[in-house]
Design a protein around this nucleic acid. Structure first.
Length: 107
DNA sequence: GTCGTGACTAGCC
DNA sequence: CGGCTAGCCACGA
């Protein structure tokens, strides 16, 4: 038996796990996910993990946005991200989320 | 071990 | 509001 090589680092797994916990119709921020996994300040690394997102669509990476209420980025395009979130019940004003404080869920 | 890159954040002008 | 800088972390080459 050979050692099952880790395709992903523990850090990235934690990111997907935390992201998968986001309920429908709600959004969270990269910083909150980073905080949730006990690695505050690693918002940038969180973005890197979601960009790879090998668990998509199991992991709703589109529910993760920036701290200022903007959609941030998305592997398939920020436009697509907004469309998906609109279907979830989130509304937008250009790149900005409406009622962000209301939709934002703290992990 | 070092460098470059990135879906980030906060501060400053 | 828009644009720029510096700081931050993790990964791949």
């Amino acid at each position: 038996m050979k050692k099952p090589k880790e395709l992903l680092s523990a850090f990235e797994k934690s990111v997907y796990e935390a992201t998968a916990k986001i309920p429908c119709g709600r959004v969270t921020t990269y910083a909150e996910i980073a905080r949730k996994i006990k690695k505050p300040g690693s918002a940038r690394a969180v973005g890197n993990a979601l960009n790879k997102n090998p668990f998509a669509p199991k992991v709703p990476c589109h529910r993760v946005v920036k701290t200022d209420g903007t959609v941030g980025g998305f592997a398939s395009g920020s436009e697509k991200k907004k469309v998906i979130l609109k279907k979830e019940g989130i509304q937008f004003n250009n790149e900005k989320i409406l009622h962000f404080n209301e939709k934002f869920i703290k992990l």
